[in-house]
């Protein structure tokens, strides 16, 4: 597999959210606005890239049976780094993402890539894999957030497109998250088949 396909597979063909259906809790939980979705996506991308890199660096030193606990510790460390840094320099984003920042640690995408890819491949491909998956994840979250924000309040990234009094509140509320994601999966399935 060339590095290019390695990178692009996360965007559409193996998109972690739309195709692999991983990491759905933050996907649904934080996407009330496009900005929150993007922030969450980038935080997860950082954790993905860094943990993929470290896991592939140390993989030969870790005995097989304690592989998973060791990976979890590595991932949890990077999550804490994100948590502390965001709290220090982006306090308002930290507040709106709330509980979902520490929960990156149980995001199946991260552990899944560490176990399925980084523990078997070299550092370079692991970083690219993490980057591709992370960007695919961010794209999915931003898209979902943008659609919900647009339908619900008439804004995209805080930019008013139509008057907010015509917004359909249900899309900002929880049911909207499920429904929009359902239809997005439908569309992506179609695109992948074509």
């Amino acid at each position: 597999m060339s590095q290019l396909t390695n990178f692009t597979k996360g965007l559409l063909k193996e998109n972690p959210v739309f195709v692999l259906l991983l990491g759905l809790c933050p996907t649904l939980g934080v996407t009330t606005t496009a900005f929150n979705g993007l922030g969450m996506g980038l935080a997860t991308t950082f954790v993905l890239v860094m943990s993929n890199m470290v896991v592939s660096l140390v993989k030969s030193g870790i005995p097989d049976k304690v592989r998973i606990p060791a990976f979890i510790v590595i991932i949890a460390s990077f999550v804490t780094v994100v948590e502390l840094t965001m709290q220090a320099y982006l306090p308002s984003l930290f507040e709106s993402l709330g509980l979902f920042i520490p929960l990156i640690v149980v995001n199946c995408v991260v552990l899944g890539r560490a176990e399925a890819f980084a523990s078997k491949n070299n550092v370079g491909s692991s970083i690219i894999d993490g980057l591709g998956m992370g960007i695919g994840f961010s794209l999915a979250l931003t898209l979902l957030g943008a659609i919900r924000e647009f339908l619900g309040t008439g804004e995209v990234f805080g930019l008013q497109i139509f008057d907010s009094s015509y917004g359909m509140i249900v899309f900002i509320l929880n049911p909207g998250a499920f429904i929009v994601l359902g239809y997005l999966i439908l569309v992506v399935n179609r695109l992948n088949k074509a």
């Binding site: 030969s60 030193g61 870790i62 005995p63 097989d64 049976k65 304690v66 060791a70």
Partner: peptide, 11 residues
């Protein structure tokens, strides 16, 4: 890597 008790604990 083979898993022995000692190298698991150490790792």
């Amino acid at each position: 890597k083979e898993s022995t008790f000692i190298n698991m604990v150490v790792a």
